[in-house]
Protein backbone atom coordinates (compact mmCIF):
# COMPACT_ATOMS: atom_id res chain seq x y z
CA UNK A 1 0.00 0.00 0.00
CA UNK A 2 2.80 2.43 0.87
CA UNK A 3 4.30 1.87 -2.60
CA UNK A 4 1.01 2.82 -4.18
CA UNK A 5 0.58 5.87 -1.92
CA UNK A 6 4.00 7.18 -2.91
CA UNK A 7 2.83 7.68 -6.49
CA UNK A 8 0.07 10.06 -5.43
CA UNK A 9 1.05 13.69 -5.74
CA UNK A 10 -1.20 14.65 -2.83
CA UNK A 11 1.02 12.65 -0.49
CA UNK A 12 4.42 13.36 -2.05
CA UNK A 13 5.65 15.53 0.83
CA UNK A 14 5.05 12.93 3.56
CA UNK A 15 7.73 10.95 5.32
CA UNK A 16 7.58 7.17 5.93
CA UNK A 17 5.84 7.39 9.25
CA UNK A 18 3.21 9.73 7.96
CA UNK A 19 2.61 7.53 4.91
CA UNK A 20 2.09 4.55 7.22
CA UNK A 21 -0.56 6.41 9.12
CA UNK A 22 -2.30 7.23 5.85
CA UNK A 23 -1.97 3.59 4.74
CA UNK A 24 -3.81 2.54 7.86
CA UNK A 25 -6.96 4.38 6.75
CA UNK A 26 -6.64 3.53 3.05
CA UNK A 27 -8.33 0.79 1.09
CA UNK A 28 -8.21 -0.41 -2.50
CA UNK A 29 -11.19 -0.30 -4.84
CA UNK A 30 -11.24 -1.95 -8.27
CA UNK A 31 -13.82 -0.91 -10.86
CA UNK A 32 -14.49 -1.95 -14.44
CA UNK A 33 -14.96 0.29 -17.45
CA UNK A 34 -18.37 1.92 -17.17
CA UNK A 35 -18.78 1.31 -13.46
CA UNK A 36 -19.92 4.17 -11.29
CA UNK A 37 -17.38 5.19 -8.65
CA UNK A 38 -19.51 7.76 -6.86
CA UNK A 39 -22.92 9.06 -7.80
CA UNK A 40 -24.18 12.62 -7.87
CA UNK A 41 -26.26 13.50 -4.77
CA UNK A 42 -24.80 10.64 -2.71
CA UNK A 43 -23.07 11.41 0.59
CA UNK A 44 -19.47 12.44 0.00
CA UNK A 45 -17.51 10.31 2.41
CA UNK A 46 -14.18 9.41 0.80
CA UNK A 47 -11.47 11.07 -1.19
CA UNK A 48 -9.98 8.83 -3.91
CA UNK A 49 -6.74 8.67 -5.83
CA UNK A 50 -6.33 6.92 -9.17
CA UNK A 51 -3.63 4.25 -8.97
CA UNK A 52 -4.36 2.83 -12.39
CA UNK A 53 -6.88 3.60 -15.12
CA UNK A 54 -9.00 6.70 -15.67
CA UNK A 55 -12.21 8.09 -14.23
CA UNK A 56 -14.49 10.64 -15.79
CA UNK A 57 -16.40 13.22 -13.80
CA UNK A 58 -19.81 14.06 -15.16
CA UNK A 59 -22.77 16.22 -14.26
CA UNK A 60 -26.31 15.08 -15.11
CA UNK A 61 -28.21 17.43 -17.34
CA UNK A 62 -31.93 16.71 -17.60
CA UNK A 63 -32.73 15.52 -21.09
CA UNK A 64 -29.08 15.16 -22.06
CA UNK A 65 -27.87 12.63 -19.57
CA UNK A 66 -24.44 12.63 -18.04
CA UNK A 67 -22.15 15.32 -19.42
CA UNK A 68 -18.50 14.57 -18.67
CA UNK A 69 -16.50 17.66 -17.73
CA UNK A 70 -13.08 16.20 -17.04
CA UNK A 71 -11.14 13.03 -16.52
CA UNK A 72 -8.87 12.09 -13.65
CA UNK A 73 -5.84 9.94 -14.37
CA UNK A 74 -3.08 8.07 -12.58
CA UNK A 75 -1.65 9.92 -9.59
CA UNK A 76 -4.56 12.40 -9.40
CA UNK A 77 -7.35 12.68 -6.89
CA UNK A 78 -11.10 13.11 -7.01
CA UNK A 79 -13.74 13.63 -4.39
CA UNK A 80 -12.24 16.43 -2.31
CA UNK A 81 -15.80 17.26 -1.30
CA UNK A 82 -15.36 14.49 1.25
CA UNK A 83 -13.21 16.87 3.27
CA UNK A 84 -16.11 19.32 3.59
CA UNK A 85 -18.69 18.96 6.40
CA UNK A 86 -21.84 17.00 5.50
CA UNK A 87 -21.01 17.12 1.82
CA UNK A 88 -22.80 15.43 -1.08
CA UNK A 89 -21.30 14.45 -4.43
CA UNK A 90 -21.80 17.23 -6.95
CA UNK A 91 -20.97 14.97 -9.87
CA UNK A 92 -20.87 11.36 -10.90
CA UNK A 93 -17.51 9.65 -11.28
CA UNK A 94 -17.41 6.72 -13.67
CA UNK A 95 -14.52 4.53 -14.74
CA UNK A 96 -13.66 4.96 -18.42
CA UNK A 97 -11.00 2.25 -18.17
CA UNK A 98 -10.59 -0.65 -15.77
CA UNK A 99 -9.42 1.34 -12.79
CA UNK A 100 -7.81 0.85 -9.42
CA UNK A 101 -8.50 3.50 -6.80
CA UNK A 102 -7.09 4.18 -3.37
CA UNK A 103 -9.86 5.22 -1.03
CA UNK A 104 -9.25 7.46 1.98
CA UNK A 105 -12.21 7.97 4.27
CA UNK A 106 -12.77 11.69 4.68
CA UNK A 107 -13.59 11.59 8.40
CA UNK A 108 -10.56 9.43 9.18
CA UNK A 109 -8.34 11.69 7.13
CA UNK A 110 -9.62 14.78 8.96
CA UNK A 111 -8.94 12.99 12.26
CA UNK A 112 -5.38 12.32 11.10
CA UNK A 113 -4.96 16.01 10.25
CA UNK A 114 -6.07 16.89 13.76
CA UNK A 115 -3.69 14.43 15.38
CA UNK A 116 -0.73 15.35 13.18
CA UNK A 117 -1.07 19.00 12.17
CA UNK A 118 2.09 18.86 10.11
CA UNK A 119 0.76 15.95 8.08
CA UNK A 120 -2.47 17.85 7.74
CA UNK A 121 -0.70 20.97 6.53
CA UNK A 122 1.37 19.07 3.98
CA UNK A 123 -1.58 17.19 2.52
CA UNK A 124 -3.88 20.21 2.52
CA UNK A 125 -1.17 22.23 0.81
CA UNK A 126 -1.08 19.69 -2.02
CA UNK A 127 -4.84 19.50 -2.06
CA UNK A 128 -4.95 23.25 -2.56
CA UNK A 129 -2.40 22.96 -5.36
CA UNK A 130 -4.53 20.35 -7.07
CA UNK A 131 -7.73 22.37 -6.70
CA UNK A 132 -6.02 25.49 -8.00
CA UNK A 133 -4.60 23.68 -11.02
CA UNK A 134 -7.88 22.01 -11.75
CA UNK A 135 -9.69 25.35 -11.52
CA UNK A 136 -7.16 27.02 -13.79
CA UNK A 137 -7.36 24.24 -16.35
CA UNK A 138 -11.14 24.52 -16.22
CA UNK A 139 -11.00 28.22 -17.11
CA UNK A 140 -8.88 27.36 -20.11
CA UNK A 141 -11.27 24.59 -21.07
CA UNK A 142 -14.20 27.02 -20.79
CA UNK A 143 -12.53 29.46 -23.18
CA UNK A 144 -13.20 27.05 -26.02
CA UNK A 145 -10.01 28.37 -27.53
CA UNK A 146 -9.86 26.04 -30.54
CA UNK A 147 -13.11 27.29 -31.97
CA UNK A 148 -11.53 30.04 -34.07
Amino acid sequence: MKQALRKIRLLCDLDDGQLERIAAIASIERVKTGDIVVEEQGPANSIRAVAEGRVSIAVSVPGRGELPVCTVSVGEILGWSALLPQARWLATARAVKDTTLIVLRGAALLDLYEQDRELGYRVMHRTFETVAERLHDTWLQLMDSYRQ
Binding site: V69, C70, L140
Partner: peptide, 9 residues
Protein backbone atom coordinates in the same frame (compact mmCIF):
# COMPACT_ATOMS: atom_id res chain seq x y z
CA UNK B 1 -20.39 9.87 -22.45
CA UNK B 2 -19.21 7.77 -25.37
CA UNK B 3 -15.75 9.36 -25.26
CA UNK B 4 -13.47 7.25 -23.09
CA UNK B 5 -10.32 9.33 -23.54
CA UNK B 6 -9.01 12.31 -21.60
CA UNK B 7 -11.21 15.33 -21.00
CA UNK B 8 -9.70 18.67 -20.05
CA UNK B 9 -7.45 21.36 -21.43
Amino acid sequence: RRWLGNIGF
